[in-house]
Structure formats: C-alpha cells, structure tokens
Nucleic acid binder design. Structure first.
Lengths: 219, 219, 219, 219
DNA sequence: CATGAATGAGGCTTCATTCAT
DNA sequence: TATGAATGAAGCCTCATTCAT
C-alpha cells in the first residue's frame, strides 16, 4: 500500500497509455500494433484502454491527434519577427527539418496515416485547424519578400509549403530504403548536417531566383 | 473445357499471384495484407502461394523486388542525349514525377518498407544495384552542366538526387493528409499539373543558381 | 448461474488442460495430438491453452513434467525399511511393475519422448533430479544385501536399475505388438499376474546368484 | 539421356521409396512423417508413392513389414547347434542384443507401432508367422537345458522370450531419457559392452538358478 | 478504478492427395 | 512410367474485445 504511482491515478494512467500507444503505432503501424503491448508498456491493465479510449481505432485517433498537437505546441517556437525575408524563410525551413529530425514519431504516424488514406484523420474534428498557423506564417514571409523585391513573383504559398516540408520529410521518412540502396548511413550526424545545408540552399535558391520565373514558359 | 486461363499454367499462376500480392500489400501494408485475399484476387489456391513463394514474408520480398524491377525497366525510357543540361535535368526530374504518379504501388511499397525499417529490402540480394543507373545519369548531367558553366559548382549528385526524388515522392506519398488538412483535391489533374511545373522550377532554380552558392556561407 | 465449475477458476482450468493434454499426448503422440481436442476435453477455450502454457510444445513439456512429478510422488510409497534385502529388492521391483501397470500414461509419454530423442525432456530444468531417490534406494538395498552376504558381489546399481525398470516397462510398452504376434491377451489379469511373478523371479535369481559371477569370464 | 539411374526403373524406384519410408517413419513416427520428405529422399516423384503403394498408411504398413522381414532374414544367422544349453541361451540372448543395436529402425518402428496400438500391424497378413522360428529355437534350447538338468524346471518359453527381448530392447528404446536423467552416454561403446555382459548374466543366472524356483512360493 | 481470465473469429501455414500433361 | 501443379481440409496460433470479480 502507499504505492501512489500505480493506484487510482486516472490522468496518469491515460497519459501513460497514450504515450505507449504513440510508440507502438509508430513502431508497428495500425495493423501491426498490439493492444497488449500498449497496455504492458503503459504499466496499465488492458481493460483500462477500453475504459478510457473505447477501442483500438479510437486509441489510434487519439494518438494521431496527440501527434498533431505536438506540432502545434512547437509552432510557438517559430516566432519569426525578422525583417529579412531570406533569413525568415531559412528559419521556417529549418524549423521543419529540425522538427522531423527530433520527432520521428510525427513522421511515422503521418506516413502510416497516409498509407491508410487518412482514414482516421478524416474522423478528427480539430486537426484540420492545426496547420494553418504555419501556412499563415509562410504567407507573411512571402508577402514581405516580394514587397522588398527579394523573392520571385510567382510564389505560391501552398506549393512552397509542400516543397519545404516534403524535402525534409522525405529524408527522414525514406531514410531506410535509400540508406540501404546507396549504402550510406543516412542518420549519421555529419550526413544530416550536410543534408540540412543542402535543403536550405535549395529553398533559398528557388525563392530568390527571379530570372527563372520565365523559364517556366519553356515547358 | 478449353478454359485455358485456369489450368496448368505455372508461369501465369505465379504472375497473377505476384500482381495480386503487390496490390494487396500496397493497399494494406505487410501486417494488414491477407494471404487469402491475395489468393482469391489471383484466382489461385492459397496453397499455391506457399508452393511458389514459401511464405508471406518471401512473397512480400518478391513483390518488393518486382516493384524495383519495374523502375529499372522504366529507366530505359530515360535516354537523355540532350546537349542542353537544363533540359536534361528537367527530363530527369519529370521522369521521377511521372513515374511516381503512374506507379502509386511503387510509392506505397517503398513507404511500407520504410516503416518496417527496410527489414525485407535488406534481405534482397539484387535490389541494391538497381538505382545506380539513375544516379549515373544524374552525374553525367551534372558534369555536363558544370562544364558548360550553366550549373552551380557545388552540386552533389546524391543530395540532388534525393531532392529531385523526394520533392516528387512526397507529393504522392503524403497526398491524403495534406489533401485533408488543406482541403484540396491533391490528385486532381489541374493540381498535379500545377505541382509538376513547380517541382521543375525548384530543381532548375537550384542547379542554375550560381550566385547563391556563396549564400550558404551565411548559415 | 451458480455454475461454479466453469467460471473464473484459473487453477481448475489449468489443471483440466494439463490432464487433457496428458491424455491426448499419450493417445496420439506429440505430432498426432490436437490442440483442439485438448481444449475440448478440458472444457476450456483453446485460447486458454496459449494463455497459460504458451504453445503446444510448452504444453507438452508441462505434461511431461507432470508425468515425472507423478512418479516422484509415488516414490514415497516405497519406504523400504526391511531387514531382508531380498524382500526389499522384491518390493522395489514390484513397485516399478505396479507403477507402469497403473500408469500407462507414464509409459506412453516416456516412449513418445524417446522417439523424439528426448527433445523436450532436455529442456526441462528439474526432471533430472527426479529419479535419483529411486536410485539411492536401490544402492542402499544392494549395500545391505552384499554386507549380509545374500547378494552377489558384482552388482552395479545403474545396470540393475535398468534391468528392473526395463523388464517391467517393456511388457507394457510393447504389449500391442507381441500380443498380436503371439496371439495372447497380454493385458488380461491372469497374464499380468503370471508375468509379475516371473519378473520378480528373474531379478531375485540374478541378485542372489553368487556362483555365476565367475561365469562372466566365459564370454 | 542415358541417365539410367533415374528413368524407368520400377523396381529400383519402389525399393528406394521403401527405404526412404523406413527412415522417415523411424525418424518422425507415422503422424510426423512427411510424404514429401520420403519422395525427395527416394529421389522419386511424390506421385510414384501413390502409384506403387496407394497411400501413406499402406506405405507405412509396407515399411513395417519390411522391418519384420529384416528380422526374419537375420534369424538364419542364429543356427544354434550347440550341445551346451547355457552357451545356446547366451547366443540367443546376444542375437537379440546385437540385432537391436545394429537395427535401430526395428526398435523405432516397433515402438511407433505400439504407440498406435498395433493399428497397422493388425492389418498385416504375414507378420504373425514371422517370430515363430525364434520362439521354436528358444523352446528347443529350454528342453535341452532341462533334460541335461542345467536349467530350472519352471521355465516358460514365452516369459523367457519376453525377458530376453525386453531387457535388450528397453536399453535401446529408452536410451534417450535414461541417458539424460542419469547423465550417461548410453550409446557409447564401453557403456554398451558393459550392458551387454550384464544382460547375458541376468538371463543365465535366471535360467540356471534352480534353487530359487521354490522362493517364488513366498510371494 | 482496476484486474486478468475468457472468448470467437480469423490469420498463416501444412498436409495428404488428385489432376492434367 | 513419370512429373509437378493444384486442391480442400485442417492445424497451430493470435487478436481485439468482453466478462466476472
């Protein structure tokens, strides 16, 4: 008795289950995840999962929303008040790079969810609002860069956002296969540092390349 | 009688099983895929899968190698004999875009495999050699572009390849979540056409942006 | 309601499974035994077998150890405090005869296990200690018999044990084939009584035959 | 062409199948034996087994009869023309010891068959006659030993046969469990030589022990 | 709130046997 | 005679979920 860590602590139990669920779903995907594993990892009884979350699908959705919530919290770090749009876009790009690097569970959950055609995400009521702040930030940066004449004119926020996110995301999401095919240790620190710089270069080259705007007419 | 499609045609049976396996693994991932479904879709007896492929894991590996083999075959299309390096890089980029667009099974199998940390790919003996030709093509293009002074000096083939592949791959691999969060029909033809042009622009801007080579020193 | 025999009685469930397992493995051997049969005979859900024992192999090992444990328990009956070594060896011999007669499952499990080259027995951690008490008893009897000059000098406990056990064991283990070949109802009570006496005679003749000790030189 | 070893040699194929069957049934028992394994080991097509033997059960019966036929052939070696009944009984005993030692497949097939309650043996039409010659030999030896006053009067051929056979058989049939429990290498040559002598001693002590005939009245 | 025993459906795999050639 | 592709039944095992306490 007196074992306060185990007895009658609903919030703690829920949190532990959620954390264990995120880890398990990341590690094995939805189909491969085991409710038993989650219960054990959470130090909770399996019945508690059903008590608090209903079933495996609902637990997965909770884990997915937890992941998106993590991104929302991190956005606050990204307070770009820079006068320099180039520096701002650089920070914006690096924010994504760093986030994916430090939150592999985010990458894995999104990848899993995409394989399931966003089946569960579509059931979420408040996820859709989450990414907007980042998009708004990007739009502000673009506007400022174009006003000051540093950025090309034909920038589209949505496309640029996809490129910035994708170029970083892909490195982490597909590291295993191309690491194997090209026989490189993708996750080594020096490899990541090298790639990080490349990513920034690509983005900055694109947004500041005003000449090539016309080149699009070629294709 | 006369039902030539069902009787004693081992090669056909194997092929049908493999095709059904690719579809099923793409649709549901390794853990979610059902051997029964594959057998039924192939119009074959379930026992045949074990007769020809051994077990589910071996069948998955065969499907994975089939996917990579498909890429190898497609490479022949990419005979870039252009004198213009910019045009060459454009073709190279579009080849990847088109391939991912037209072969969603390639994207899904690779994504699945990455979620499993390339567990099965590592068992493959001849996959590693497959991507080399593409990399060689890219190196030739880079060399030519730099000789003619059109390309920047600091291009790294590996990084550029990852960027070209990733920027396209990401669009298709993450279409479902992005489409939902931003409420856009990512797979609509006009959206894809728009994106296709953007991707080309980004790559060309980067490789031809000789000025910003120095800008990297800033970060 | 009130059906206490079926609900929430883990010990009872485990015991019933184990008993059913012993019967099934005896009847059909390891390969021939059916997990479904065991579950049904135990009145339990098949899943419970895996819950409590892990898998078929582990269940078999548990059954095997149960069998050996039965022998250990029976040993307590064999408290030979006789002053007469001949009477002691007679009791010792009859103990084995009676045990094999009354525990056909012991004979069958051992026979099955030997056909499998003791594959599972070797995994057991506490079986090896079980037979020692019997061997110790025999050694004491031999020592006493030799001290009093009733037994021959060249008795080897291990060999004698094998003979005592084997001569009885064989009758029950091979009853079906030689019962058929010689067309006799081996398991009829009068046949067993006759054989029982013969077995005792053979052992006593051997241990008390001091003259023939030299005869070994002949061969 | 010209590969005479593989093509169109019915007798050879049948013999190879039978030999492979004996080996497989010995190694794994009836339930554990695999028709595929037998076909492969025989270098034959699986269909041939069904062509020549009908089905798995019939093949097993054929293997069982083959085993008994082997014993019959070996009996000819046992031409005991000795004037000395003790020497004759010694030879008779050693014949069984040697046969079991040199033909483990005989021991295993009989053991397997007994576990199945002689299910298949009972279907055999000519096995029952096979052991008679040995029994007749033993009866002659007993008669001679009793006529010359060397053997005890109460010898029963059937019981003596069982003892002689069983005491040897048991050593080989139960070698694995005994070897493990007592931690001895039962099949080592020096162990076998030691045991061989012991077995002979036990039998000779019994048949020549005329005094203890009365002692049976005690029990 | 918490436990873990119990369940039924379904998953992968194996098997002896038959069929078309 | 010989081959090996094809089959349906059944085996072991796993899973998410519910129930009794």
């Amino acid at each position: 008795m007196g074992d306060i860590t185990r007895k009658r602590n609903p919030e703690r139990t829920q949190r532990l289950i959620l954390e264990a669920a995120v880890a398990e779903f990341c590690e094995r995907g939805f189909g491969g995840a085991r409710v038993d594993n989650i219960a054990e990892a959470a130090g909770a009884n399996k019945r508690m999962i059903y008590h608090y979350f209903g079933n495996k699908e609902a637990l997965y959705l909770a884990a997915l929303e937890e992941i998106y919530a993590g991104l929302r919290n991190a956005e606050h770090i990204l307070d770009i008040e820079d006068d320099d749009p180039v520096e701002a876009i650089r920070k914006f790009t690096l924010f994504h790079w760093e986030y994916y690097d430090q939150h592999p569970e985010f990458v894995k959950m999104l990848t899993t969810e995409n394989l399931m055609k966003a089946k569960y995400l579509k059931r979420s009521n408040h996820v859709r609002t989450l990414k907007s702040p980042l998009m708004e930030s990007l739009k502000r940066i673009i506007a400022q860069g174009q006003q000051t004449g540093v950025f090309r004119d034909d920038l589209d926020a949505f496309n640029l956002y996809l490129t910035i996110a994708g170029i970083s995301y892909f490195y982490f999401s597909n590291a295993y296969t191309f690491g194997f095919v090209f026989n490189r240790d993708i996750m080594a620190e020096h490899e990541k540092a090298d790639r990080r710089q490349h990513v920034v270069n690509v983005i900055i080259s694109y947004v500041t390349d005003k000449a090539s705007t016309d080149s699009t007419a070629l294709s």
